[in-house]
Design a protein around this nucleic acid. Structure first.
Lengths: 215, 215, 215, 215
DNA sequence: AATGAATGAGAATTCATTCAT
DNA sequence: TATGAATGAATTCTCATTCAT
């Protein structure tokens, strides 16, 4: 594969794709419009990417990569689960504010229009996080700080579920609307309480209770 | 006016629509294919539904209605939050097993392809649940069984988030794959532990801890 | 062919057809709408008329017949060409006021959408008028009142042309607009002067001039 | 921006459109068939024209433009009304022979199928002619060569009516058939006498008569 | 005989992809 | 090598016509 495109140009093209895919979804996004938005010709797009789907995948990967980078910067070697969670939530909120279309793209990926692309990709995207979260929770549990009868993998899974929904809530139309129904305002107007309450929720979920201590 | 379209036929058509929309998404689903799948001509589709979008909406509404019916049957006048949650999870698991395409269709609705249809629809779909959950949690909190400093609306929201993700996990390709990454197997093979662990998670999240009791 | 339809019902159906065809033209008129407008089912339409085109023809014929009746009532045994013309114009103006859609239908017939239907039909529609006008002009000429070197057939033809355009001007959108461009107002607002001026024009055209008399 | 569509190709496409629209009318003409006739793909049609209607308008404008060019070439600075008329008729006859489909297309425009497009278009098409004819007749009248009591605008209108019908007679099926009924042969076979007789008719209509002179 | 629901061919339009320049 | 014009398959939607009730 040729690589005459400068790094910045490539960046620009992928960002154009992410924006368009995030706005209209895989099916309703036009390759011609992406090219126009990126200031290149369709020909170039097809020179570097086999077809629409592979370009979509490239966009997904870029947006995931960026999220991963953001997160890993923020949460280096964090000790305690809840502190870790707090930083994570903060970082996600920031990321959602700065790159909503990246999250929208990610949501696009999960929808059925992209069904054929899923195999393998999920592994690549979710694998790191899954292992990371499971690991931390497992460790915290072994430290005796989480109820002994919890399945660390499933608890990690639930934890991640809450974080995924958090992102969709900030970035995707339907979920934003749904938040408004629950809370009467845009999620952006409640950044702090969302973070605090989610932390409480997690704190409660992850902390040993009186009776657990007794035993 | 004769109504050649029997109740069952209508049912069949909507199910065909739900299946196709769930499989390919709003944009990539073809009305002709839906008609073929339902064993009717396109003409009929357009006799009963203004256009593709209104048919899509009819499908969404049907699937929502059916879920609502299932849930409201299961959880009448339930007293305790956790018992309520248990029934809810059970009912959702059953529903996911029986009508996966309904959930897939719901997920489609949340993706950007259906953006123009969202306003108002979210209210209709999420409104009931939102009020129900908020109400129960509020009550439970006033009974002194949930930490006093929790925002019942946000706790209800997190609760619903977990249930939404549960459904997607059972029914939508990407989420299934993701679950496998966390747990190494299909969610269907873990029905019981998923239910039990989610209940534990919720129980912990919603139950007062030692220090809370002191005050 | 069955004929259980009462005379009035048939009338109503054809009038519905004339109205619709006059409004939207042959191609854009829907048989279903005609049926609805006439208060019958499409089935009936197709019981009495082979297909859309034959129904269109039936409508054309009815509207022509009615015009013919109106004219022949008005202009019985008229002696002088110009008096004859005056009555004719008056009758046409009245007809246009009362049955604009009939004229519109007639115009539809002349347009290419109805190309295959033309053969034979023109004869049926124009034959009477053509012979009538040619006859009168021929007679008037033989009476020495029209220049000897005029071809009565062509003069009759020009005469009819002016009357056709008169009708279109009163009834058909484009021609009405065109009239406004010439005169700055709707033809309906100028009934009298249109009639008078057309008569002057015809009078001049048909009357011998000084030099002709000399010879 | 490259312009692969050469001037000639564009010409060809518009001519294909004019031919098809002239043959079948706006509603029954298919864009795919036009493309096929022009030897291009539909895509090109839609690249250069918004939709069917704007393409139709482009065709109309082209055909009008060409007629205008033909006429304005022929009749520069003509002095006398009748000489002017003679040149005009000659030019129209030639134009009808060379571009019958242009006239057919023009006739299509006047039919109800194109109703929504009419506003404004009529002004554009008829305005020039209307002013030109009215002007010449007005002038001629002021020179004392047309009866003083004639309304120049209406006389110009009748004049134009005769010329419009002349064109339809040469080019449109129904009108051709109608001519045959009057004269027993095709208009093409009577070019000269049609022109001569129409000139006589106009000459008579526009020339002062004995009694007018007296006063 | 009348009804009007159902059929399905056909038309407009879009857009991923190709390829001549 | 880049361009973007051209292609044409696929999609939505309409409506003349049929035919079961």
């Amino acid at each position: 594969m040729l690589r005459r495109l400068t790094e910045e140009k490539l960046e620009e093209i992928l960002e154009a794709g992410i924006a368009e895919f995030g706005e209209h979804g895989l099916a309703k996004t036009s390759m011609n419009k992406i090219a126009a938005r990126a200031g290149i010709s369709v020909g170039v797009l097809y020179k570097y990417y086999e077809d629409k789907e592979s370009f979509f995948l490239a966009c997904v990967k870029k947006s995931i990569l960026e999220l991963d980078r953001t997160l890993s910067e923020t949460i280096q070697k964090e000790d305690k689960l809840l502190q870790y969670a707090e930083r994570l939530i903060e970082a996600l909120q920031r990321h959602c504010r700065e790159h909503p279309s990246h999250i929208r793209m990610y949501h696009e990926l999960t929808s059925s229009g992209a069904a054929e692309l899923v195999p393998g990709l999920a592994q690549e995207i979710e694998g790191v996080t899954a292992r990371l979260y499971s690991g931390i929770i497992d460790r915290t549990q072994r430290e005796g700080k989480i109820r002994r009868d919890a399945d660390p993998k499933l608890f990690a899974f639930f934890f991640d579920n809450l974080l995924m929904m958090l992102q969709f809530t900030y970035c995707c139309g339907y979920y934003k609307e749904r938040f408004r129904i629950y809370c009467g305002t845009e999620p952006e107007n409640m950044d702090t309480s969302i973070r605090k309450e989610l932390l409480k929720f997690l704190e409660s979920a992850f902390t040993l209770k009186a009776k657990d201590i007794t035993h």
